[in-house]
């Protein structure tokens, strides 16, 4: 471990934080999305939707704690700047996450007459969490600018991220449910693909506009050629996904996991795009990864921990998904 040069450590931790945030967006993405899609569904369907995420949602949210935790412990100065600038949306997001997390349990345990109320809280909490996460992403991209166009962009980002989470949730439900609910999920997925695409295009336009460095990074040669596969692959994936969902009913032999895989692919590509654009900044236009990092000694001792625990965590996460594989069944403690 001491063979790792001090300059490389912060970069490793930036990567770790990025991977944790990406895993959070994908994993909590499907259960947040499932929460959003519960609006307007029948009670039977809502029970099935809850059952599909029951064994997983808690661990999914832990990736957010890890992501923010790495930001806190590896880049304490950036943690303060970012969360200070996003004070109100962070508070609202936390309120949303609290509301949906507890509603998940209360709906099945509190009096039956209150179940609908808790379901409404679950949907509202999910919506609050996705909207604020989207807003924060948009705000981060503009470097926390408080001008009107920047705020409008952040609001657009809030809507598009919410749509992307809905898409993720719908693809999860295609995999985990059957019959009518699965058919409805296919429709929801198809509706949210164009909106997700719109969001990606908007970010791609605004990103170079607000930052000359990003413009430079994207459009100078040879970067532009190296970078070109990214938008092309994203567009191809989204188009393929849309086509797949369009004729899903006819081709019953399609793998039910494929929409989820393709959406995950879109998330990964979008993440790579963002990571490339901002590296090595942790706070756009303000702090680089080296300026914001903790002491190398502290980072080394955490890296040791990661070396042993992360493979274990990934191992038992895989075990959990293996145990609960296939179509979800009704939740029962016994």
């Amino acid at each position: 471990m001491s063979a790792i040069p001090d300059d490389l450590l912060p970069v490793i931790f930036l990567g770790l934080m990025g991977v944790a945030m990406l895993l959070y967006a994908v994993l909590d993405g499907y259960d947040l999305g499932t929460g959003l899609l519960m609006a307007g569904k029948s009670e039977v369907h809502r029970d099935q939707m809850i059952a599909s995420i029951g064994p997983f949602w808690d661990a999914n949210e832990t990736w957010l704690v890890l992501g923010v935790g790495v930001l806190l412990v590896a880049f304490p100065v950036a943690h303060g700047v970012i969360l200070g600038a996003l004070y109100i949306p962070v508070t609202l997001m936390l309120a949303g996450l609290i509301l949906r997390g507890v509603s998940f349990d209360f709906r099945a345990k509190a009096q039956a007459k209150h179940k609908n109320l808790w379901d409404c809280c679950f949907i509202a909490g999910s919506l609050l969490a996705t909207l604020t996460q989207g807003y924060m992403l948009g705000s981060y991209i503009t470097g926390f600018s408080q001008t009107l166009p920047a705020i409008l962009f952040a609001l657009l980002s809030a809507l598009c991220v919410t749509c992307a989470y809905m898409l993720m949730g719908a693809c999860w439900l295609i995999l985990k449910t059957t019959d009518e609910l699965q058919q409805q999920s296919i429709k929801s997925a198809r509706r949210t693909v164009p909106l997700t695409a719109l969001g990606l295009v908007a970010v791609s336009i605004v990103n170079p506009l607000v930052s000359p460095e990003i413009l430079q990074k994207w459009l100078s040669t040879p970067q532009i050629f190296l970078l070109a596969p990214l938008p092309i692959a994203t567009a191809a994936l989204l188009y393929g996904l849309y086509r797949l969902l369009d004729r899903y009913t006819e081709t019953s032999n399609t793998s039910e996991a494929r929409p989820l895989m393709m959406t995950t692919g879109v998330f990964i590509l979008a993440f790579i795009g963002l990571a490339y654009s901002f590296f090595p900044m942790v706070v756009p236009g303000q702090l680089t990864v080296w300026e914001a990092a903790s002491s190398p000694d502290a980072l080394r001792i955490i890296l040791w921990g990661c070396l042993f625990t992360l493979p274990t965590i990934l191992g038992y996460t895989a075990l959990s998904y293996f145990l609960f594989r296939g179509k979800s069944t009704a939740l029962s403690y016994m």
Binding site: G54, F56, A59, E61, T62, Y316, L323, F324, Y333
Partner: peptide
């Protein structure tokens, strides 16, 4: 955190 969260899923719903 990950240990308790993941095995909680199995403890609650995996019997």
């Amino acid at each position: 955190f990950f240990l308790e969260a993941t095995f909680l899923g199995i403890m609650l719903f995996g019997s």
